[in-house]
Write a protein that binds this DNA or RNA. Sequence first.
RNA 1: GCCGAAGUGGCGGAAUUGGUAGACGCGCACGACUCAAAAUCGUGUUCUUUCGGGAGUGAGGGUUCGAUUCCCUCCUUCGGCACCA
Length: 853
Amino acid sequence: MDYNFIEIEKRWRDYWRSNQTFKTFDDITRPKYYILDMFPYPSGQGLHVGHPLGYIASDIITRYKRLRGFNVLHPMGYDSFGLPAEQYAIQTGQHPAITTSKNIDTYRRQLDLIGFSFDWDREVRTSDPEFYKWTQWIFIKLFDSWYNREEDKAESVDTLIEKFQDSGSGNVDAAASDHEVFSAEEWNGWSETEQRNMLLNYRLAYLSETSVNWCPELGTVLANEEVKDGVSERGDYPVERKLMKQWSLRVTAYADRLLSGLDEIDWTTALKEMQRNWIGRSEGATVNFTIDGFDETLEVFTTRPDTIFGATFMVLAPEHEMVAVITTNSRKAEVDEYVKLAMKRSERDRMMDVKSVSGVFTGAYALHPFSGDNIPIWISDYVLIGYGTGAIMAVPSGDQRDWNFARHFELPIVSIVSDTDISEGANENKDGVMINSDFLNGMKISEAISTIIKHVEEDGVGTAKINYKFRDAVFSRQRYWGEPFPVYYKEGTPYMLDESELPLKLPDVDKYLPTEKGEPPLARAKNWTTKDGYALETNTMPGWAGSSWYYLRYMDVLNEDEFVSEKALQYWQNIDLYLGGAEHATGHLLYVRFWTKFLYDLGYIPFEEPAKKLVNQGMILGEGGEKMSKSKGNVINPDDLITQYGADTLRMYEMFLGPLDQPKPWDTKGIEGVYKFLRKFWRLYHNEGNTFTISEDVANEAELRALNKVIKKVQDDIENLSFNTSVSALMICVNDLSSLKCNKRAILSDLVVVLSPFAPHIAEELWSKLGNDSSISYTSYPEFDEQYLTSDTYEYPISFNGKTRFKLSLPLDLSKDEIEKEVLANEQSIKWLEGKDPKKVIVVERRIVNIVL
RNA sequence: GCCGAAGUGGCGGAAUUGGUAGACGCGCACGACUCAAAAUCGUGUUCUUUCGGGAGUGAGGGUUCGAUUCCCUCCUUCGGCACCA
C-alpha cells in the first residue's frame, strides 16, 4: 500500500501524546481563542459517526487558529452524571461510577483515534468530587443570594437581612416567590426559623412546595424541558403533576436579562427565537375582581386590559386555591367531580384533547370593577394553574378560546370593537375602535390599553405587569447518580454546609432504588447526617447542574482553592465559539447563561454571557435519511471506518458531507472519493515506487496560481465555517497539481500546511519527510499572494437577452466602450445579432456582457 | 395553530455583494492497463431535441438588461412550541 494510513496515524498519535503537543498554557503574550464543544454524556454505546461531527469542525478551527498564532483553549470532558448509568445500576447492582468510568474509557479511545488536538490535562468530569465540589459551592452561593430588582442584580442575602432589620420588607423590590409586607419590628421579633423560612421566598436557590412534573416510572421529578409531549424525554414515560417539596432555582429573576442578552451574542436566530419563546414574555396588567359575598379577591392577568368591558364571565384553573372557597353548596358536588377528574388527567391527556370544551359553574359571582355587573365564575382546564394567576377574565368577543367556551355554555358575548363580526368567532385583531366600553369608547386599541391601565392603577384594582411563560427551575431529583446537595436540616429548616466541608461526597447505598417509604435512594445511606447528627438532604441535583458552569473549570482545572482563578478568567474570558446540538436550546443553554449572569453579579467572573458565538451542528442521519439509533440498526461506527480508511479520511469526509449546520444523510460509499483524494495528495510527494521525491525547482505560474487559490479559499472557508467547500478546494488544487505533475517543494511545503487542520496525521508525516523537526501544528499558515489570484484578461460570458451564447477572453484594461466594440465586432455576435441593431448593450466589467435585442 | 430553518441533476451538495446554474465528490456508462480481477488512470454524465436549438434551481406571479439570489401568494419537508389569557 502506497499511503499507509494505519502506520502513519499510529506514529503521530504516539508522537502527540509523548510530546504533549497540545498541552495549553496561559501564555498571555499571545492572543487567546477559546473554542468549546458541548461535552458528551458517556453512554454505553460509544460514539457513532454523528457525534464527532462538531468535534472535527472545532478541531479544524483549533488547528487553523494555532497556525495563525493564537493560543487556543480546546478542551474536552464528560457530563458524567445521568440517568442511563443509574438505570443500569438498578438492573445490575453495579455502581454507576464503575459503568461511567468504563464508558469514558471507550469514548476516550474513540476520540483519540480521530486525532483530536484536545488538551486532555484539562479534562473535567461532572461526577468527579473535585469537580462537583464547586457545583455544590455555586449552589451555596445561589442559596445565599437574592435578586435586587432595584439594582437589577443578585446580591448576598446579608444585604436583604439588613433591609429587613432596618425597615422591614415594604421598600424591598426583590424577585420573590411570595412577597409579604412586614415591618422591621416584626422581622426582629421572629425566631431564627421564622426568619429563615421567610428568606426562602427570596433566595435564588429555595425550597418550596411546588407543582412538579412527577414521573413515577423514573421515580423522579423532571424539569419542564425534560418533558416532551407529556412524557419524559428519557424513556418516554408518562408524567403527571404532583405537589412536592423541592429545591428550585429562581431563574425567572433573570428573565429580562436572559432576553436582552440575546441581542449581544452571535447565536443563530432559530436558537434565540426558541429561548425567547421559552421565556415567553408578555406585557399586560393584573386586575383584581372582588367576589360577591367574600373578602378575598380574584387576581387575573391579561395582555388585553382594554377588553375588560367585554368580560362576561371568569374562569379559574381547576387547581386554583379559591375554587374550594367560593363554590356554593348547590354546585359543590359537580365542581368537586370536575376538579377530581382534571387532576387525574395526565398532562398528556390534557394536551391531546385541546379541542373539546369542558367546565363547571362554581355558583359564585365576581363584581366587574367598572360596570359593577355580576359575572359568573366558572372553572375549566383550559385555564392553566401555572401561567399568570391561574385565573382569567373571559372576553369571548376577543379571544377564541373564551368564545368557544361562551358558545358551548351559552354565556353572553359582548362586542367591544367597532365593525367586527363575532357571530362565527372571536375578533383577535387589533384594528378598530372601542365600543360598549364606557370611558374607553371611541379609542383605538393601543390608546385604550394605556388608558385602562392608568384607571386600574388609580382605582387600586390592578397594575401594569409583565408576565413570563417560563417557571423557576426545579432543581431536585429523587435519584442517586447526581451531585448531593450541601444541605442539612434542623427541624425541617434547610441549612448549608460550611464551604470547608465540601465536597459532600455521594454515599454508598445498598440499592439504587427509593426506600419503602418512597424517599430517594440517598435515604438508604448509613449515617447520612452531619457531624452534629443533622439529617442531610436526600435529593440530588439534576443533570444540567455541572454543565451550567463546566466551561469555566477548563480554564483552571487543577485549582483547589477556587472554582477558577481570576487570572485564568482575565486571560481566557468567555467562549469564542461554542459548538453543539440544538436540542439544548431551552435547557443547558438557558441555564448556563443564567449561572454565568449570576456569577457575574457576584463579581466572580468578568463577563455576562458564556459564549460569544454558538453554532449548532446538524444531525447526521442514517443512509435512509432517518435518525441513527440502535433500535433502527442503522448506526455507523467510526472505528470501522478508521480501520478501513483512516482517521484523516473520516475527518475530511464528515466535513465534505455538507454544511456543518444542516442535517444530512450519511452515505458510506461517498467516503471513497475523499480516500482517493488523500492518496492522490500522497502521490504528489512520492514517485511511482512510493519513494518520497521532491524537486527543488522554482515553481511556475500555473502551480503558484493553484496554490495561492487554495490558500485563500481554505482560510476564507474556515472563517465562515464552510468546511465542505474547503475540502472541494483542496481536491481541485490536488487535481490541478497532479495534471501539472508538480512535486516542487516551493508548492508542496505550503500545501501540506493548508491541509493539516483537516488531515493532521498525513500532514505531520509529509511535513517531517520534508525535513522539518517539529510538529506542523505550530508552524504558520501561508500567506497568499494577490498577484497569483488575478489575471490581466477575463473570459467574458457574452449573453443575448440574458442567455449566455459564447465566451470571449478580453484584456481587463479595456474600457466599457472598447469592450462593447470588441464584442459587437466578433463574428459570433454577428451570427446572434441576426442583422438586428442591439437595443442596449450592458457591460459589467469583470462580470458579463449582455446584449438586448 | 404559532415560531424558525430549508426545498437546485440519479444522490450529497456548489454558485460569499443580483451577473457563465450544476463546482467538488458519489453513482452510472465507455475506454486504457491486465490472462483476468482489484487498484489506478482517462473520457462522458441536468433534461429534451428534428442537433439549429429548447426547457430548467418546489409551484405561480412580480421587479430587472439579467433572479437559485430581491418582493408577493401558495405547496412540501424538517426542527421547536403548543389552550400562555
